[in-house]
Write a protein that binds this DNA or RNA. Structure first.
Length: 495
RNA sequence: CGGGGCGUGGCUCAGUAUGGUAGAGCACUCGGUUCGGGACCGAGGGGUCGGAGGUUCAAAUCCUCCCGCCCCGACCA
């Protein structure tokens, strides 16, 4: 109660001091609350009556659609095709791969009844689709000529999570899962790495989120994989977020699902497989990497509205200002920019400024009678709040250039933050100090033993996020046990 | 799943120690004046207090059980 009173007091103070938005908890005060406040106030998502499950609202879904389009384009460009497999998987199929079941069993939702009859065999609601897809691949592959199979699926999956958070971990979530089958181990390995590269490029280019690409340790890899690659991003509170994973499955699933083919040398072989996925969690990542105390900041490339036009009503503005605003919007649209004209009369311009900042629109375009006299508009960047008067002539080009700059600047800012929060530790004590002082990535030599990894996790909560591809030689002995270091690993507390 | 916190109009909360039948601000509706950083005046609508039991003449308030959300830990995208 005391807290509530104090908080309200602080919010009022903030308002008096000229802060623009007072309806969300400041990021520095309580990062978690800030995160959920932003999501709800920006209308990205809402809690649903189903425990652990959320509703993705139109504005949030529009972001997902833009991500989907960009990812899908990249999948097609690398020769993949989309298909759809069933939501339900017979228990017996899931059980075939021992490590796989073991990994997923605690998170699986079961269907035991259909209508008014008990099922003869229980079904699981897919937590991932290796089992059902492997079963189908066994039917489709006879010869080396049938390979590779490069299929992607856009779907929902269910994992019975104990603790859920909007976007980051919900019982049901949306994702994309690629499942490929190849003739050789080298080909599968190349595919796993290629898709990791696609993910990195996508996240950095479209989401302006710098990521570290690397390999997971054995204890962190996907259940049933030979090895797992991931890209890891650093959130605004210094915790890491796994933004995408790509697995080399070897022949583990091929052997249990019997996916065989006649090879070029006429021998019968098992296929080599990969799988890779990205989820709606990325939306949570975008919020936590770019957002500020005023709310969301969306990278232009995934912003549902890249520009919001706010006409300033004054005098007979409906005859003068509004038509100009509409004309400018049309011009921008023709040039390929996503524009919204906020012509609502029930809200003041100031209210609209705050509202669209909260919703993360990258660029605001103000146009009023004064501007029209001068043949200009006022552009305002969401990230820096800079006000930039711009002549009406050549506006589409100016806006496009500004959006591109903003996209780059967001990436640069995030990269600088990540770099500032990435430190090296050579000793056990230094490692612990760094983690407690300024949360972020800590690079430290590791001997490769699962024990050391587990011990570090147990007393610092930090895990090895991944080990960079082509790691340099270790910088010293293992931070935990002092034995010869094998690699420099990237540690962090994570979501 | 363990520890802690919280559920009262759409939102933020007051009211709960001392039971007497629900209030504020914001939001919303209508009318008018406004509008270059969350405008103002006037008139309205809306809650049975997370749910179910119980105690009592009387329960938001006391008791029991259940549910949900948030935060911190063990598991995961």
């Amino acid at each position: 109660m005391c807290n509530a009173v104090r908080e309200r007091g602080q919010k009022l103070m903030a308002a008096k001091q000229g802060a623009f938005v007072t309806e969300i908890t400041p990021r520095s005060e309580d990062f978690s609350r800030w995160y959920t406040d932003v999501i709800r106030r920006a209308e990205l998502a809402d809690y649903s009556p189903v425990k652990g499950s959320m509703v993705i609202r139109p504005y949030g879904y529009a972001i997902w659609e833009l991500m989907q389009a960009e990812l899908d384009r990249r999948f097609k460009a690398t020769g993949h095709v989309n298909a759809y497999f069933p939501l339900f998987i017979p228990e017996s199929l899931l059980r075939k791969e021992a490590a796989h079941v073991e990994g997923f069993a605690p998170q699986v939702a079961w269907v035991t009844r259909g209508g008014d009859e008990d099922l003869e065999e229980r079904l699981v609601v897919r937590p991932t689709s290796e089992a059902i897809i492997g079963t189908m691949y066994a039917k489709w592959v006879q010869s080396w000529r049938d390979l590779p199979i490069l299929i992607n699926q856009w779907a929902n999956v269910v994992r019975w999570e104990k603790v859920t958070r909007l976007f980051l971990r919900t019982t049901e979530f949306l994702w994309q899962e690629g499942h490929t089958a190849h003739e050789t181990e080298a080909e599968a390995e190349a595919e796993a790495l290629r898709m990791l590269g696609v993910y990195k490029e996508f996240v950095e280019q479209e989401l302006a989120m710098p990521v570290l690409d690397g390999r997971k340790t054995d204890s962190e890899k996907f259940a049933g994989a030979v090895h797992t690659y991931s890209i890891e991003a650093l959130m605004g509170d210094g915790r890491a977020l796994q933004a995408g994973t790509s697995h080399h499955l070897g022949q583990n699933f091929a052997k249990v699902f019997d996916i065989k083919f006649q090879a070029r040398d006429k021998s019968v072989q098992f296929v080599w497989q990969t799988s890779w996925g990205m989820t709606t969690r990325l939306i949570g990542g975008v919020i936590m990497v770019h957002g500020d105390d005023s709310g969301l900041i969306l990278p232009p490339r995934i912003a549902p509205h890249q520009v919001v036009v706010v006409p300033i009503p004054r005098g007979n503005w409906r005859e003068t200002v509004l038509p100009r605003a509409q004309a400018i919007a049309d011009e921008l649209r023709t040039a390929g920019t996503r524009v919204l004209v906020d012509d609502r009369e029930e809200y003041s311009p100031g209210w609209k400024f705050a509202e669209w900042e909260l919703r993360g629109v990258p660029l605001r375009l103000e146009i009023g009678p004064r501007d029209i006299e001068r043949g200009q508009v006022v552009l305002v960047r969401r990230d820096t709040r800079e006000k930039l008067p711009a002549p009406m002539d050549g506006l589409p080009e100016r806006v496009r250039a500004l959006l591109a700059t903003l996209q780059e600047d967001l990436f640069e800012r995030a990269r600088r933050f990540r770099d500032e929060r990435t430190q090296r530790a050579a000793t056990r004590d230094a490692f612990r100090e760094l983690l407690e002082g300024r949360p972020g990535f800590v690079i430290a030599p590791w001997c490769g033993a699962a024990d050391c990894e587990a011990r570090i996790k147990a007393d610092t909560q930090a895990t090895i996020r991944n080990i960079p591809l082509d790691p340099p030689s270790p910088s010293g002995p293992c931070v935990e046990c002092g034995a010869g270091g094998q690699v420099d690993a990237w540690f962090a507390k994570s979501y």
